[in-house]
Design a protein around this nucleic acid. Structure first.
Lengths: 189, 189
DNA sequence: GCGCAGAATTGATAAATATCAAGAATTTCA
DNA sequence: TGAAATTCTTGATATTTATCAATTCTGCGC
């Protein structure tokens, strides 16, 4: 679980002495392609670190299926609002490939608050970092065109374009698969 | 400061005994129309509750001025990422009208962590609520058209359309003033 | 009240993006 | 491996939204 500890340090800014306590509250879990980590309507009770693999967060409203986000290895995945507030999840989380995860359940997660004096502070910073990611996303819709969003994703995460069905990326970028296809053609020439 | 205490209770879910401690760390401040609460590039050191008035959060990139958000009375305003992580602000916050605020400075805010045992937990929940608002915003771009975003804002916050220059609302909704004007015409008939 | 400046609307047109339909490419899995 | 299913691309067209330019409207200082 070396990689997990490193990532916890990176994301939670935890002190060395707390690292192993936090990391050992996670347990290893392997899941298969197409398995669900979360289904719409349920309460999200898990936070998972993706050791290996890809997962997709998506939902359908009025016949429109939207991919909200693709999480890749080295990152956490959960539905934060459901996990924090115990509200019904609005998204499905499904494995796009076989995955290896380190997962923590909500009750274990809450116990960390009793064990680790700084826990709520760390948790606060974790959530604040998630906030910043979303803020960046809102900005991308306010400042950028579909084409610019495509170019940005391609430059930051080029590997996604080999590993993820393009229709999902299109949806995540707020455009149709046809538009994404044409932007790719245009960029490649 | 009755309204402030109520709002703190609502937003921070604070226990009654902590309410007054939190509320009294805020101080009253009146500002004039067009005054800045924050300028791009500075560190945001204040969190303000709007007792009365309206403020606009905006920024300019490549000649494009974007209004990110309008905050109204009864809500908090700050640049959360700058306030939490002491990073340079990416936005300006400017009063659209004369305003009455209750403001807390970062150092006072941090002292609350020493006084109130639950503080980091409350803070965590506050940030998580901000996260949910942003998530809602991302969804509005993924699921909805410009017209649907306009209709939604009109139904949730009709008073904004009297009080805020429409060009700012257009920008916040991710459209041009001309498009907003035409959507209004279409809706009214 | 008058005139000015900023804001909003309107019209004409262009550009971006979506939709629909068909065909090509790729993946899946029996 | 080969057939079926899914995904991707392409073309034709429609819709949405942006752009640019010209008025009109509105609020504000004098």
């Amino acid at each position: 679980m070396k990689d997990l500890e490193q990532y916890i340090q990176h994301y939670f800014d935890a002190r060395a002495e707390d690292l192993s306590a936090i990391a050992s509250a996670f347990s290893y879990k392997a899941i298969h392609k197409s398995d669900y980590l979360l289904k719409e309507g349920r309460i999200c009770t898990q936070l998972s670190f993706i050791k290996q693999g890809l997962v997709r967060i998506y939902s359908t409203q009025n016949d429109k299926e939207v991919t909200q986000w693709i999480s890749i290895s080295g990152y956490f995945v959960t539905e934060l609002s459901s996990f924090i507030f115990n509200t019904p999840a609005r998204w499905n989380i499904q494995a796009l490939t076989d995955c290896e995860l380190y997962t923590i359940d909500k009750d274990q997660y809450e116990k960390l608050g009793l064990q680790i004096p700084e826990w709520h502070k760390l948790e606060k910073l974790f959530i604040a970092k998630c906030f910043i990611i979303l803020e960046e996303r809102v900005n991308s819709f306010l400042f950028m065109t579909a084409e610019e969003r495509y170019n940005q994703l391609l430059s930051i995460n080029p590997e996604l374009f080999n590993q993820v069905p393009l229709q999902y990326l299109a949806s995540m970028l707020g455009m149709t698969p046809e538009t994404l296809s044409r932007l790719r053609k245009k960029a490649i020439g």
